[in-house]
Write a protein that binds this DNA or RNA. Structure first.
Lengths: 145, 145
DNA sequence: ATACATGCAAAACATTTGCATAAGA
DNA sequence: TCTTATGCAAATGTTTTGCATGTAT
Protein backbone atom coordinates (compact mmCIF):
# COMPACT_ATOMS: atom_id res chain seq x y z
CA UNK A 1 0.00 0.00 0.00
CA UNK A 2 1.09 3.48 -0.92
CA UNK A 3 1.95 6.08 1.66
CA UNK A 4 -0.95 8.41 2.37
CA UNK A 5 1.13 11.58 2.22
CA UNK A 6 2.48 10.59 -1.19
CA UNK A 7 -0.97 9.81 -2.44
CA UNK A 8 -2.26 13.13 -1.15
CA UNK A 9 0.44 14.92 -3.14
CA UNK A 10 -0.45 13.01 -6.28
CA UNK A 11 -4.12 13.84 -5.97
CA UNK A 12 -3.37 17.49 -5.37
CA UNK A 13 -1.20 17.51 -8.49
CA UNK A 14 -4.02 15.88 -10.43
CA UNK A 15 -6.45 18.52 -9.22
CA UNK A 16 -4.09 21.32 -10.25
CA UNK A 17 -3.52 19.76 -13.66
CA UNK A 18 -7.23 19.75 -14.32
CA UNK A 19 -7.50 23.31 -12.94
CA UNK A 20 -9.49 22.44 -9.90
CA UNK A 21 -8.65 24.71 -7.01
CA UNK A 22 -6.98 23.58 -3.83
CA UNK A 23 -9.14 24.94 -1.03
CA UNK A 24 -8.80 24.35 2.69
CA UNK A 25 -12.11 22.49 2.65
CA UNK A 26 -10.97 20.17 -0.12
CA UNK A 27 -7.71 19.52 1.65
CA UNK A 28 -9.51 18.67 4.87
CA UNK A 29 -11.99 16.36 3.14
CA UNK A 30 -9.23 14.65 1.20
CA UNK A 31 -7.11 14.05 4.26
CA UNK A 32 -10.01 12.58 6.15
CA UNK A 33 -10.94 10.25 3.30
CA UNK A 34 -7.37 9.14 2.70
CA UNK A 35 -6.81 8.38 6.35
CA UNK A 36 -10.06 6.59 7.15
CA UNK A 37 -10.29 2.86 6.80
CA UNK A 38 -13.76 2.73 8.35
CA UNK A 39 -15.61 3.79 5.20
CA UNK A 40 -17.11 7.00 6.54
CA UNK A 41 -20.43 8.44 5.40
CA UNK A 42 -20.79 11.97 4.06
CA UNK A 43 -22.32 12.93 7.38
CA UNK A 44 -19.30 11.51 9.22
CA UNK A 45 -16.85 13.38 6.99
CA UNK A 46 -18.89 16.52 7.59
CA UNK A 47 -18.64 16.03 11.35
CA UNK A 48 -14.87 15.68 11.15
CA UNK A 49 -14.33 18.58 8.76
CA UNK A 50 -16.31 20.91 11.01
CA UNK A 51 -13.82 20.43 13.85
CA UNK A 52 -11.23 22.49 11.96
CA UNK A 53 -13.55 24.38 9.58
CA UNK A 54 -16.77 25.02 11.46
CA UNK A 55 -18.42 27.00 8.66
CA UNK A 56 -18.15 24.21 6.10
CA UNK A 57 -21.46 23.17 4.57
CA UNK A 58 -22.79 19.71 3.87
CA UNK A 59 -23.21 20.69 0.22
CA UNK A 60 -19.48 21.22 -0.06
CA UNK A 61 -18.82 17.74 1.28
CA UNK A 62 -21.24 16.28 -1.25
CA UNK A 63 -19.69 18.28 -4.09
CA UNK A 64 -16.15 17.32 -3.14
CA UNK A 65 -17.03 13.67 -2.66
CA UNK A 66 -18.65 13.72 -6.07
CA UNK A 67 -15.54 15.27 -7.60
CA UNK A 68 -13.23 12.70 -6.02
CA UNK A 69 -15.52 9.92 -7.19
CA UNK A 70 -15.37 11.28 -10.75
CA UNK A 71 -11.59 11.40 -10.57
CA UNK A 72 -11.56 7.78 -9.42
CA UNK A 73 -9.87 8.63 -6.14
CA UNK A 74 -12.58 7.31 -3.85
CA UNK A 75 -15.03 4.46 -4.09
CA UNK A 76 -18.71 4.81 -3.31
CA UNK A 77 -20.27 1.98 -1.35
CA UNK A 78 -24.04 1.77 -1.44
CA UNK A 79 -25.45 -0.18 1.44
CA UNK A 80 -28.62 -2.21 1.41
CA UNK A 81 -30.37 -0.21 4.08
CA UNK A 82 -28.23 2.68 5.09
CA UNK A 83 -26.63 5.83 3.81
CA UNK A 84 -23.75 5.80 1.41
CA UNK A 85 -20.27 5.22 2.71
CA UNK A 86 -16.97 6.02 1.05
CA UNK A 87 -13.57 4.42 0.80
CA UNK A 88 -10.61 6.65 0.07
CA UNK A 89 -8.09 3.92 0.79
CA UNK A 90 -8.98 1.48 -1.95
CA UNK A 91 -10.83 3.39 -4.67
CA UNK A 92 -11.48 0.36 -6.86
CA UNK A 93 -14.14 -2.34 -6.59
CA UNK A 94 -13.49 -4.79 -3.79
CA UNK A 95 -15.65 -6.85 -1.44
CA UNK A 96 -16.98 -5.56 1.85
CA UNK A 97 -18.12 -7.37 4.93
CA UNK A 98 -20.79 -5.41 6.76
CA UNK A 99 -22.10 -6.05 10.25
CA UNK A 100 -25.87 -5.74 10.27
CA UNK A 101 -25.85 -4.99 13.99
CA UNK A 102 -23.27 -2.22 14.35
CA UNK A 103 -22.73 -1.23 10.69
CA UNK A 104 -19.02 -1.89 10.98
CA UNK A 105 -17.40 -2.54 7.60
CA UNK A 106 -14.19 -4.43 6.90
CA UNK A 107 -12.43 -5.48 3.71
CA UNK A 108 -12.09 -9.27 3.63
CA UNK A 109 -9.52 -10.96 1.45
CA UNK A 110 -11.33 -12.73 -1.36
CA UNK A 111 -10.15 -14.67 -4.33
CA UNK A 112 -12.13 -15.86 -7.34
CA UNK A 113 -13.52 -12.49 -8.42
CA UNK A 114 -11.49 -12.38 -11.61
CA UNK A 115 -12.53 -15.93 -12.49
CA UNK A 116 -16.16 -15.11 -11.83
CA UNK A 117 -15.96 -11.98 -13.95
CA UNK A 118 -14.60 -13.73 -17.02
CA UNK A 119 -16.98 -16.63 -16.49
CA UNK A 120 -19.85 -14.15 -16.62
CA UNK A 121 -18.49 -12.30 -19.63
CA UNK A 122 -18.22 -15.54 -21.56
CA UNK A 123 -21.71 -16.80 -20.79
CA UNK A 124 -23.63 -13.53 -21.08
CA UNK A 125 -21.87 -11.50 -23.75
CA UNK A 126 -21.83 -8.53 -21.39
CA UNK A 127 -18.66 -6.48 -21.14
CA UNK A 128 -18.17 -6.33 -17.38
CA UNK A 129 -16.70 -3.03 -16.19
CA UNK A 130 -17.08 -3.20 -12.44
CA UNK A 131 -18.76 -5.05 -9.65
CA UNK A 132 -19.98 -4.64 -6.15
CA UNK A 133 -19.78 -7.45 -3.65
CA UNK A 134 -21.12 -7.02 -0.15
CA UNK A 135 -21.41 -9.68 2.49
CA UNK A 136 -23.76 -9.08 5.41
CA UNK A 137 -23.40 -10.76 8.76
CA UNK A 138 -22.65 -10.43 12.45
CA UNK A 139 -19.18 -9.35 13.51
CA UNK A 140 -17.35 -11.19 16.30
CA UNK A 141 -18.05 -8.39 18.76
CA UNK A 142 -21.79 -8.38 18.19
CA UNK A 143 -21.94 -12.18 18.35
CA UNK A 144 -20.84 -12.01 21.99
CA UNK A 145 -23.85 -9.92 23.03
CA UNK B 1 -38.05 -24.00 -10.45
CA UNK B 2 -41.44 -24.13 -8.81
CA UNK B 3 -44.65 -23.40 -10.67
CA UNK B 4 -45.83 -19.84 -10.16
CA UNK B 5 -49.45 -20.78 -9.43
CA UNK B 6 -48.35 -23.23 -6.74
CA UNK B 7 -46.08 -20.68 -5.20
CA UNK B 8 -48.85 -18.08 -5.24
CA UNK B 9 -51.06 -20.49 -3.27
CA UNK B 10 -48.32 -21.13 -0.76
CA UNK B 11 -47.76 -17.46 -0.16
CA UNK B 12 -51.48 -16.83 0.22
CA UNK B 13 -51.63 -19.63 2.78
CA UNK B 14 -48.69 -18.09 4.61
CA UNK B 15 -50.41 -14.72 4.68
CA UNK B 16 -53.60 -16.25 6.05
CA UNK B 17 -51.68 -18.17 8.71
CA UNK B 18 -50.14 -14.97 9.97
CA UNK B 19 -53.56 -13.26 9.76
CA UNK B 20 -52.67 -10.88 6.99
CA UNK B 21 -55.66 -10.17 4.79
CA UNK B 22 -55.93 -11.20 1.19
CA UNK B 23 -56.94 -8.06 -0.66
CA UNK B 24 -57.33 -7.56 -4.41
CA UNK B 25 -54.41 -5.14 -4.36
CA UNK B 26 -52.16 -7.64 -2.62
CA UNK B 27 -53.16 -10.36 -5.04
CA UNK B 28 -52.41 -8.13 -8.00
CA UNK B 29 -49.04 -7.06 -6.64
CA UNK B 30 -48.11 -10.63 -5.77
CA UNK B 31 -49.01 -11.94 -9.20
CA UNK B 32 -46.99 -9.26 -10.91
CA UNK B 33 -43.94 -9.90 -8.77
CA UNK B 34 -44.15 -13.66 -9.14
CA UNK B 35 -44.44 -13.43 -12.90
CA UNK B 36 -41.76 -10.82 -13.60
CA UNK B 37 -38.23 -11.88 -14.33
CA UNK B 38 -37.14 -8.34 -15.22
CA UNK B 39 -36.72 -7.15 -11.62
CA UNK B 40 -39.36 -4.42 -11.70
CA UNK B 41 -39.18 -1.24 -9.61
CA UNK B 42 -41.95 -0.17 -7.25
CA UNK B 43 -42.97 2.40 -9.84
CA UNK B 44 -43.20 -0.30 -12.51
CA UNK B 45 -45.33 -2.55 -10.29
CA UNK B 46 -47.53 0.46 -9.57
CA UNK B 47 -47.98 1.09 -13.30
CA UNK B 48 -49.04 -2.51 -13.88
CA UNK B 49 -51.35 -2.74 -10.88
CA UNK B 50 -53.19 0.38 -11.96
CA UNK B 51 -54.28 -1.28 -15.20
CA UNK B 52 -56.72 -3.48 -13.26
CA UNK B 53 -57.03 -1.40 -10.08
CA UNK B 54 -56.81 2.24 -11.09
CA UNK B 55 -57.40 3.63 -7.61
CA UNK B 56 -54.43 1.81 -6.06
CA UNK B 57 -51.93 4.10 -4.36
CA UNK B 58 -48.16 4.06 -4.46
CA UNK B 59 -48.13 3.77 -0.68
CA UNK B 60 -49.92 0.44 -0.90
CA UNK B 61 -47.30 -0.87 -3.30
CA UNK B 62 -44.56 0.19 -0.93
CA UNK B 63 -46.35 -1.34 2.05
CA UNK B 64 -47.00 -4.63 0.27
CA UNK B 65 -43.49 -4.85 -1.09
CA UNK B 66 -42.21 -4.25 2.42
CA UNK B 67 -44.45 -7.01 3.77
CA UNK B 68 -43.32 -9.51 1.12
CA UNK B 69 -39.72 -8.60 1.81
CA UNK B 70 -40.25 -9.27 5.52
CA UNK B 71 -41.82 -12.62 4.72
CA UNK B 72 -38.80 -13.48 2.59
CA UNK B 73 -40.88 -13.90 -0.53
CA UNK B 74 -39.16 -11.23 -2.59
CA UNK B 75 -35.61 -9.97 -2.76
CA UNK B 76 -34.71 -6.30 -2.75
CA UNK B 77 -31.98 -5.22 -5.11
CA UNK B 78 -30.39 -1.87 -4.44
CA UNK B 79 -28.66 -0.43 -7.45
CA UNK B 80 -25.62 1.78 -7.38
CA UNK B 81 -27.32 4.78 -8.91
CA UNK B 82 -30.93 4.00 -9.49
CA UNK B 83 -34.16 3.17 -7.74
CA UNK B 84 -34.71 -0.13 -6.02
CA UNK B 85 -35.76 -3.14 -8.06
CA UNK B 86 -37.37 -6.32 -6.84
CA UNK B 87 -37.16 -9.99 -7.70
CA UNK B 88 -40.14 -12.18 -6.88
CA UNK B 89 -38.75 -15.14 -8.82
CA UNK B 90 -35.66 -15.80 -6.80
CA UNK B 91 -36.13 -14.27 -3.35
CA UNK B 92 -32.72 -15.25 -2.06
CA UNK B 93 -29.34 -13.60 -2.61
CA UNK B 94 -27.93 -14.19 -6.05
CA UNK B 95 -25.70 -12.24 -8.42
CA UNK B 96 -27.01 -9.71 -10.91
CA UNK B 97 -25.53 -8.39 -14.10
CA UNK B 98 -26.66 -4.85 -14.75
CA UNK B 99 -26.26 -2.90 -17.97
CA UNK B 100 -25.10 0.63 -17.18
CA UNK B 101 -26.52 1.89 -20.49
CA UNK B 102 -30.07 0.54 -20.52
CA UNK B 103 -30.47 -0.67 -16.90
CA UNK B 104 -31.34 -4.17 -18.08
CA UNK B 105 -30.71 -6.79 -15.38
CA UNK B 106 -30.08 -10.47 -15.87
CA UNK B 107 -29.17 -13.30 -13.50
CA UNK B 108 -25.85 -14.83 -14.56
CA UNK B 109 -24.87 -18.32 -13.47
CA UNK B 110 -22.04 -18.02 -11.00
CA UNK B 111 -20.16 -20.54 -8.97
CA UNK B 112 -17.74 -19.99 -6.09
CA UNK B 113 -20.05 -17.94 -3.87
CA UNK B 114 -20.30 -20.64 -1.22
CA UNK B 115 -16.54 -21.11 -1.19
CA UNK B 116 -16.03 -17.37 -0.90
CA UNK B 117 -18.54 -17.14 1.94
CA UNK B 118 -16.89 -19.80 4.08
CA UNK B 119 -13.45 -18.44 3.22
CA UNK B 120 -14.59 -15.08 4.60
CA UNK B 121 -16.20 -16.55 7.68
CA UNK B 122 -12.98 -18.38 8.53
CA UNK B 123 -10.69 -15.41 8.13
CA UNK B 124 -12.87 -12.71 9.68
CA UNK B 125 -14.86 -14.42 12.41
CA UNK B 126 -18.03 -12.84 11.03
CA UNK B 127 -21.13 -14.98 10.76
CA UNK B 128 -22.16 -14.29 7.16
CA UNK B 129 -25.93 -14.24 6.67
CA UNK B 130 -26.36 -12.89 3.17
CA UNK B 131 -24.56 -11.18 0.38
CA UNK B 132 -25.13 -8.93 -2.56
CA UNK B 133 -23.16 -9.32 -5.75
CA UNK B 134 -23.73 -6.98 -8.65
CA UNK B 135 -21.73 -6.83 -11.83
CA UNK B 136 -21.94 -3.69 -13.95
CA UNK B 137 -21.22 -3.64 -17.64
CA UNK B 138 -22.52 -3.16 -21.17
CA UNK B 139 -25.03 -5.67 -22.52
CA UNK B 140 -24.60 -7.14 -26.02
CA UNK B 141 -27.34 -4.92 -27.41
CA UNK B 142 -25.82 -1.69 -26.15
CA UNK B 143 -22.34 -2.74 -27.34
CA UNK B 144 -23.62 -2.64 -30.93
CA UNK B 145 -24.61 1.02 -30.76
C1' DA C 1 -68.54 -6.25 14.38
C1' DT C 2 -63.92 -5.46 14.46
C1' DA C 3 -59.45 -5.29 13.34
C1' DC C 4 -56.59 -4.52 9.57
C1' DA C 5 -55.65 -2.47 4.76
C1' DT C 6 -56.19 1.27 1.71
C1' DG C 7 -55.50 5.86 -0.17
C1' DC C 8 -54.43 10.37 0.44
C1' DA C 9 -51.46 13.91 1.91
C1' DA C 10 -47.81 15.24 4.53
C1' DA C 11 -43.33 14.04 6.43
C1' DA C 12 -38.85 12.26 6.31
C1' DC C 13 -34.46 11.46 4.42
C1' DA C 14 -30.42 11.71 1.69
C1' DT C 15 -28.76 14.03 -2.09
C1' DT C 16 -28.63 17.71 -5.69
C1' DT C 17 -29.01 22.28 -7.51
C1' DG C 18 -29.20 27.53 -8.15
C1' DC C 19 -27.31 31.52 -6.99
C1' DA C 20 -25.10 35.35 -4.55
C1' DT C 21 -20.80 35.90 -2.19
C1' DA C 22 -16.06 34.65 -1.14
C1' DA C 23 -11.58 33.47 -2.41
C1' DG C 24 -7.84 30.71 -5.19
C1' DA C 25 -4.97 31.33 -9.23
C1' DT D 1 -8.85 40.30 -12.17
C1' DC D 2 -11.34 36.50 -13.34
C1' DT D 3 -13.08 32.26 -12.80
C1' DT D 4 -14.18 28.65 -9.72
C1' DA D 5 -15.65 27.09 -4.95
C1' DT D 6 -18.35 27.88 -1.00
C1' DG D 7 -22.48 28.16 1.79
C1' DC D 8 -27.13 28.81 2.19
C1' DA D 9 -31.68 27.60 1.06
C1' DA D 10 -34.74 25.59 -1.87
C1' DA D 11 -35.69 21.65 -4.81
C1' DT D 12 -35.64 16.83 -5.90
C1' DG D 13 -36.77 12.01 -5.75
C1' DT D 14 -37.69 8.05 -3.25
C1' DT D 15 -39.55 5.98 0.57
C1' DT D 16 -42.19 6.22 4.95
C1' DT D 17 -45.87 7.55 8.01
C1' DG D 18 -50.42 9.23 10.16
C1' DC D 19 -54.96 9.06 9.89
C1' DA D 20 -59.74 8.84 8.33
C1' DT D 21 -62.29 5.68 5.60
C1' DG D 22 -63.15 1.30 3.49
C1' DT D 23 -63.24 -3.65 3.67
C1' DA D 24 -61.88 -8.66 4.58
C1' DT D 25 -62.81 -11.90 8.02
Amino acid sequence: MEDTAVRLEKIIAKLREQSFRITPQRMAILKILLNSSDHPSVEEVYRQVKVDFPTTSLATIYKTVHLLKELGEILEIRLAADRNRYDGKRPYPHPHLICTECSNIIDPEVGFIEQITSEIEDSSGYQVLSHQLEFFGICPNCQKR
